[in-house]
């Protein structure tokens, strides 16, 4: 009995340590999530923001968004396109770089380290850099493309609805490459070298080594890189907001920038909240898939 009591006391102390952080997150994250859901079922605008009672409108905001608001569908589609395009390129390039820098040459490690820089820089700064480089007349990208003979006239990258998305995707790929590279590099170091040696002795060529050993053994790493990449990319905000603010003509409007626009430029707080919740639900489902996957890995 005494032993049991002592054990109980012991583990109860854990609550004391966790409580401050937990209470903080409950207050500044948990409560806002709930109030964002409530907000999306109300009709709060600049006029009603300070009112004591706010009208409850049920699913009206969501219904209006899906039925009457073509910008929502555009944003949804743009977010998906942006995410898939970025993931595809940053993953392939990151993978190739990881394999390359895994070779045992002199400056491999320091150079790979320096290539992490783009991931660390505040995204506002990255957005500024690419806005400058994609400038129509001042931009170095048009200058290079002209020099290579690929274009004859300067492209107005960020002010043309047809090319703005390409520009923001390229900027985001630049941010994402280091993340993919470093995680895959870490994954590569866990593959035992003996596997390659014995397979080489058995006459396997480089292509076989890659498809039969590297890829299957990296599967867990690849999956978590892609799912995490999806989550991080899908909630893109700063980069697009600074580079194009969702324009021109909504061609780069994504869910997060549209939500911001509704709430803080048009002051339709409830509509903005509803869009944020749509984004949240999608990410939540993806996160659950990821977490289920992580937990099953840990148990295995």
């Amino acid at each position: 009995m005494g032993k049991m009591k002592k054990f109980f006391q012991y583990d109860n102390i854990g609550y004391l340590f966790v409580l401050p952080a937990f209470a903080y997150m409950l207050f500044f994250v948990g409560y806002p999530i709930v109030s964002n859901i409530i907000l999306s079922f109300q009709d709060v605008t600049l006029k009603t923001l300070k009112a004591d009672t706010k009208a409850f409108v049920g699913f009206q905001n969501y219904i209006e968004l899906f039925q009457q608001d073509h910008v929502l569908m555009t944003s949804l589609w743009n977010t998906l396109f942006f995410t898939v395009a970025c993931l595809l390129f940053q993953f392939v390039i990151g993978f190739a770089l990881a394999v390359f820098f895994n070779k045992n040459f002199k400056i491999a490690k320091p150079i790979r380290g320096l290539l992490m820089m783009p991931w660390m820089i505040p995204i506002t700064v990255t957005a500024l850099i690419f806005k400058f480089m994609f400038g129509t007349d001042v931009g170095i990208i048009n200058y290079f493309l002209q020099g290579l003979g690929l274009i004859s006239n300067n492209i107005d990258w960020l002010t043309n609805p047809k090319t703005a998305m390409i520009a923001v995707v390229i900027a985001n790929i630049w941010i994402g490459i280091p993340f993919n590279m470093i995680l895959i590099s870490t994954g590569l170091t866990t593959i035992p070298k003996e596997l390659y040696e014995s397979a080489s002795i058995d006459g396997a060529n480089k292509f076989h080594l890659f498809t039969k050993i590297t890829l299957p053994l990296l599967k867990p790493t690849i999956e978590s890189v892609l799912i995490l990449g999806f989550i991080y990319t899908f909630k893109v905000y700063d980069l697009i907001y600074v580079m194009t603010s969702g324009g021109p003509v909504n061609s780069t409007q994504v869910l997060s920038t549209y939500s911001y626009k509704l709430s803080f430029e048009l002051f339709k707080y409830s509509k903005g909240a509803a869009v944020a919740n749509i984004l949240f639900v999608i990410l939540f489902i993806i996160s659950l898939i990821y977490l289920k996957y992580v937990y099953s890995e840990e148990e295995a």
């Binding site: 500044f28 999530i33 939500s259 803080f264 909240a273 984004l279």
Partner: peptide, 12 residues
């Protein structure tokens, strides 16, 4: 994994 947009309006 939470997007910033979810917290922005309620925190505001």
């Amino acid at each position: 994994m939470l997007p910033v947009s979810v917290l922005l309006t309620p925190l505001f």
